[in-house]
Structure formats: C-alpha cells, structure tokens
C-alpha cells in the first residue's frame, strides 16, 4: 500500500490476529457477548465501536499534551460518552428496532475496556494519524471476533444469516431440515457465546504456538 508505510499497516493488521483485543489482550468482552446471538446486531455493534474508537483515539491524541494526568480518566470517559451518545441517537433515529435489541449495550461501549485500554496505551503517547490507525485496527479486530461469533450462533442456533433462512425451513422440513437436522437452541442462550469464544481462542492458539500461556 502506497498510502501506508509498513509500520502503519501493521498498526491495523496486528490487532486482527496475533494481537487481537478479545482473544489475546482480553479486553472488551463485557459489552460484546450478549448481543452476538444475531449477525446483524454483531455487525452494528462492530461498526459502532469502529466509529467510537477511531474518532475517540484521534480526539484523545490531539488533546494528549493538555490533559492533566490526574484527571485523564474522567476526560477520557467524557470523550467516549459523548461519542456513544452520538451513536445511540443515530441508531435510535435510523434503526429503532435494532437499537431496542442492543438496549443498554450501546451505552456500555463507554466502559468497553478496549476503548479505555487503547486511549491509555496508545493515544496518550502517539500522534493523531497513528492513533487513528491503531483505533481502527483494534476496533476491526474486535469486530472480526464479534462477527465470527455472531455468524456461528445465528447459523447453528436459528438456521438464518441476517435473518434470512439459509438452511431451509424448519417447520416445512425443507433443505437441510429434510435430512433430520435440527436447530441447536443451545446456541441462542447467552452462555453459548462464551463457549464459542473459548473455542476460537483454542483454534487460534493451536495454530500459533507462540500465543500459548505458561501454565
């Protein structure tokens, strides 16, 4: 890419796999898992976080030299809260049904650990352009996991993707259901998300032995 130097590109690409915020840094699980029963909600959540983290990182990075370090947490919280209010109002205006589904979890982006983590670890020490890339990269890494989890939970739990049936009709017994396949209702309940993420971590760490934790 001519636009990005190799170093800048790594800022975006690293968090997608080997430094993923959810599976490696263990951040931002809080608001993520409860909404992944549907792919659509996962996607909207991912986009919201990309917006908040991208813009927030730039704002904090621009202000990094004027924020007194003692009150920086409060300043950061105010910046995130403002951005989240924007997201919430936009969702309420253009996707009311979806904002009902997400309910309080949009508000909980404020306390999403990824956001505070990136502000603290990166934006306070780097320029706006780099911070922007870092923010987008980490939010994408978060979004990727969210979408993977959402994909499997919706496909196996309801047999649909984005609400569109892809495996046939469970009541009329068409498609895959004609062979005796049943939806796994287990995938819809909240704890299944944790198990799916656990399996993702398992797969990722089996492929990349360097990530295995010491016993």
């Amino acid at each position: 890419m001519a636009l990005l130097s190799k170093k800048d590109a790594n800022l975006i690409l690293d968090p997608l796999a080997d430094n993923n915020p959810i599976t490696i840094q263990v951040l931002g699980i809080c608001s993520a898992l409860a909404i992944t029963a549907e792919l659509k909600a996962s996607l909207v959540m991912a986009i919201s976080v990309i917006f908040v983290l991208g813009v927030g990182n730039v704002v904090i990075s621009l202000m990094r030299n004027v924020i007194p370090s003692k009150i920086r947490i409060i300043v950061q919280l105010i910046v995130v809260a403002t951005l989240v209010i924007i997201v919430d109002q936009v969702l309420k205006a253009f996707a009311y049904e979806l904002s009902k589904t997400l309910s309080v979890f949009v508000g909980l982006i404020i306390t999403n650990c990824i956001i505070m983590g990136r502000f603290e670890a990166f934006a306070l020490g780097n320029g706006p352009w780099k911070s922007f890339l870092d923010g987008i990269g980490n939010a994408l890494g978060y979004g990727v996991i969210l979408i993977i989890v959402g994909f499997f939970r919706e496909l196996l739990g309801s047999g649909t993707l984005f609400g569109i049936p892809v495996l046939g009709d469970p009541i009329a017994k068409t498609g895959l259901y004609a062979t005796g396949y049943e939806n796994n209702g287990f995938m819809i309940i909240p704890p299944a998300a944790l198990i799916v993420v656990g399996i993702i971590i398992w797969v990722q760490r089996s492929r990349n032995k360097a990530l295995i934790e010491e016993a």
């Binding site: 198990i195 656990g198 971590i201 990722q204 990530l211 295995i212 010491e214 016993a215």
Partner: peptide, 9 residues
C-alpha cells in the same frame, strides 16, 4: 492452547 484464558471462558 486452552490454558489460561480459553479454559476460563
């Protein structure tokens, strides 16, 4: 590969 985080999840 499950040690630590994975098994906790």
């Amino acid at each position: 590969p499950l040690r630590g985080l994975g098994i906790t999840f």
